[in-house]
Structure formats: C-alpha cells, structure tokens
Design a protein around this nucleic acid. Structure first.
Lengths: 263, 263
DNA sequence: AGTCCAGAAATGGTCGGACCAAATAGAAGC
DNA sequence: GCTTCTATTTGGTCCGACCATTTCTGGACT
C-alpha cells in the first residue's frame, strides 16, 4: 500500500474505483481536446478494454457521466458527448429541493437575483445581434397577445435571450436551469396569469433599457416585472409542497421484507 | 397535448428504462417523506426485488442518484440518502466548463452576481444569529492575519455565512458550488494574493453594512471586495487546465479569452 | 460481569458471459 | 437509382459468481 507510487499529477480526487477511473478517463480526454461536443465514444466493449475495466464497470462510469449531462447514449447508435447549448440538468436541484424543502419562493428569489444581474450586464455589453434577438422576442410576444400558449413560449425565450445577452454562459446556464424548475411547477396554469398586454409592455421596457445601455434601469424594470410575475404566480398557489403526491398507486407494503427483529 | 387528466404530479418524463424506474422510485419515496436525509436504503438485493428490476439495473439507477449527489454508498455498510447541508456537486459545472470553454472570469462573474444579491438580501433580513456568525468570522480573520492558510479558511467561511444570512438556501447552495469551483483552481497560490489586513477591513465593512440593514451599501461593499479579489486572482494567472496532463497543448483556439463578439 | 477479538454474516464493488432491442450499414431486389 | 430487407454493430438488461469492506455476534479472556 505505497501511498506515493501513484506519481500521476492527478488531483487529491483520487477515486480508484472502476467507475471513477472511467469518469476520470473521459474527463482527461475532454481536457486534452480529444473529445469534444458531439463526438462519439468508442463502443463500450472497446472502451472497457482500453481503460482496463470490465464492461459493467465501464457502464457504471458512463452512467455517472450521463447523469451529469456529459454523455448521451442511444441504443444501437453509440454514446456521444452531449451537444447543443450548455445545459445543467434540473434533477440535482430538484432532488435537493425535495430533500431540504426548498420552496418555490426560494427558487423564484434565486432566479430573481440571477436575472437582475443578467439584465444589468446585458445593458452594459449586449452585442447588436443579441439586442436584435431581444427585439424579435418582444415583437413575437405582442403578436401573440391572443394566444397565451404561444405568448408563454416567447416569454420564456425572451428571458433566455436576456441571459444570453449578458455574455456570461455560466449565468445563462444557471438561469435556464432554475427557470426550467420554476416553470415546471406552473405549466398548467398558463393563461389566466396576468394581463398579457401589460406583461408585453413590461418586457418591452426591459428591452429598451438594455438597448439604451442603462444597467440600473434594466435591473429595475426586470425587478418590477419579476415582482409582478411572482405575485401572479403566488395567487394560484397550491399546497404543492414536498409531500403532495396524491397516493400514486397501491399502498405497497415496503418494510415487510426484512426480519422483524429490528426496530 | 391532452393535459394529464389526473391530478398526478408526475411529469410527462416517462422514463421506462430500468435505471429510470429506480430513480423515479427513490424520488417518490423522498417526495412522500418515506426517505429523508441520512436514511439508509434497503440492501441492493432486496431493493432490486422490490422494484422489480435486476441488481445490475438497480445499481445503474443508484449510480445515477449517486452522481446527482442524492445518495452515498459505503461498501459493507449500505446506501444512504445524502446528509449534511444542501450541496450541489461541482462536477456538472466543471464538465460544462471544460466542454464549452467557460473561463474563470465567467465563473467569477456569475459568483459576483450571486454574492451581490446575497449580500443585499442579507442586509434586508439577516437574523441576529446569522449576523453574529458573520461577526465571528470577521474576528477570526483579523486574528489570522499572520496565518494565510487560516485566513483563507475564514474568508471562505465568511462568504458562506453571507450566503446563509440571505435566508435563501437555493442561493446559498449555488454560491457554495461556484465558489468551490473558483477556489479549486487557485488553492495553490494562496498567500501572496493581497494584503490580508486590507482584505479583512473590507470584509468588516461588508459585515457592518449588513448589520446596519443597508442593502445598497452591502452590495457595494461586496462588489468592491470582489473586484479587488478578482484583480488579485487575475495577476496570478497561469495555464490552469484542470488536469496537469502533459497535454499536447491543443493548438485549438480554445484557450483564448472571449474575444469574439463580446464587448 | 465486562471487555476484547476472531469468525460469521451482511452489503456494496467487480467481473464475465449471455441474450435482447434498437439503429445503422450494406446487400438484394425492384 | 431507389427502396427494401437482412446482417452487423451497439447499447440495455439480466444472471450468477466472487471479492473487499463493514458490521454484527458469540465466545474467550481478564
């Protein structure tokens, strides 16, 4: 058990488990530029041999990477590095919320902080392309005043566009993730939220502030908009807290397997 | 299209894969309150039978949950729901950064947005306990002016305390995650960062603004502090690719700053 | 009686092989 | 040339076995 023979330059993150080796291997390939977005990995059987682990172990590692959103497997086709825009899964946050009782207000507030910052930064440095994208979404919103479903799509798109206009991909990714989580809980109650005309006007004011390069105003306008949005959302609240699953299925006997000696 | 007729809270996300069933099963148990932080899951062999999948498939699902930070397994002991404070792993963001070329500046900027919001919110609603915790950290920092390592610990602790004082666990978790990622890359170059005395004074000013209940001032002070911190950090820049692999130094244009289209 | 330790049991980790299902590529037929 | 069908590739699932670590248990020792 020589603790030093591992002369590798690896971080203290010395996970020597088989699955860990796989994760680290892929990570190295990515860092070295040998694997990039959209690339296809070797077949599992080949990769397993190359890394020096069994196929089950390899799959264990790939499973981890898949959970992290790094990989995506398609049966019969292969395993690929995730493509498309940077995306952080909602699962981690969602589980965290369920375990620690994060409320929707908490989520919304965090989103508010992020979006306020994004709006401010967008006003400071948005490129003309980004600003055009914002304008397009505002126009689409006004054009969809009589179609709530369509309106909502462009509402979301507008906020994503603001996040993108901030020029910071980390911020944009975080906003996307939290928004998705917040949005997930209200999908049903779309229409009757607020007066769409009023809402569209607010978005237009945000857009104008960003275009004018006024960070404070952009932040304020976004703040007002979110305040109203949250209020509207709160009015349709329900006890959607953690333990609200309405008995999805039979009251299965769960604890009857083990020996009764316990407890 | 037909909105789920039932009042079910289940998403349209109908993953019927074996691993998916496991994840969903655990999720339900958590939502229903049958599993909570620190609890121990049944043995793999029992759980597999209960859910109705094979053990390999069960392990696949557990692997996913482990990657998400929901579970933690200990050989010989069992599998447990993650305990302790809410924590979001750095792995997802870290991989995303490696894949999409997020720069350290991007990270720092996102952190800045979050911490500014947290400081502002802390000033608005921090409880006396939280404020006391802040005071303790400030005191510890002043007491460690001659011990950079110790100082850094309390520096980090102070920022975590501010995040906690915001009263928003989502925000606090996000800040913790990003901070960890930012710190991860500079652990080595600790001491020579800045004048510790000056740094401690800045933290004290942040603390005072929060205690005084002045959101704008708290935000400003935090902003000034972070601006300086970033500047100091930038001065010790280096090729900080994640792994110190010899790396054929990919001639790709990946390591460049965000020159295109920005600013 | 209390304490300590070795062996047994429980439990997660790894492995090899086998078969199934989906997707793709290439040959056969029109 | 185009379509269609088959064969190969590839990921998904399962079984059974064995290993490594931890925990429990029973007995021996003080």
């Amino acid at each position: 058990m020589p603790p030093s023979t591992k002369g590798k330059t690896s971080q203290p993150d010395a996970d020597v488990s088989a699955a860990g080796q796989v994760v680290e291997f892929v990570r190295r390939q990515i860092d070295a530029g040998k694997l990039k977005s959209g690339d296809r990995l070797p077949a599992e059987r080949d990769l397993a041999e190359e890394i020096g682990v069994s196929r089950p172990s390899l799959r264990s590692g790939l499973q981890t990477l898949q959970a992290l959103g790094v990989l995506q497997s398609r049966q019969g086709a292969g395993t690929f590095i995730a493509g498309g825009p940077p995306r952080l899964g909602v699962a981690p946050l969602s589980f965290l919320a369920a375990l620690h009782g994060f409320t929707r207000d908490d989520m919304f507030e965090a989103r508010r902080v992020l979006e306020l910052g994004a709006a401010s930064m967008a006003a400071e440095r948005a490129t003309s392309e980004r600003i055009t994208a914002l304008a397009d979404e505002v126009a689409a919103m006004f054009a969809a005043l009589d179609d709530p479903q369509e309106y909502l799509i462009h509402d979301v798109q507008f906020h994503k566009a603001v996040a993108a206009a901030s020029g910071n991909p980390v911020l944009a990714t975080l906003i996307d993730t939290i928004s998705e989580l917040v949005y997930e809980t209200r999908r049903r109650t779309v229409e009757r939220a607020v007066d769409l005309k009023e809402s569209a006007e607010m978005h237009r004011r945000i857009y104008r502030a960003i275009k004018a390069g006024d960070p404070e105003k952009a932040r304020d306008e976004m703040g007002m908009h979110l305040a109203l949005a949250r209020q509207a959302q709160a009015s349709e609240e329900e006890p959607v807290a953690t333990a609200a699953v309405p008995a999805p299925s039979a009251p299965r006997a769960l604890r009857t397997k083990r020996s009764p000696a316990k407890q």
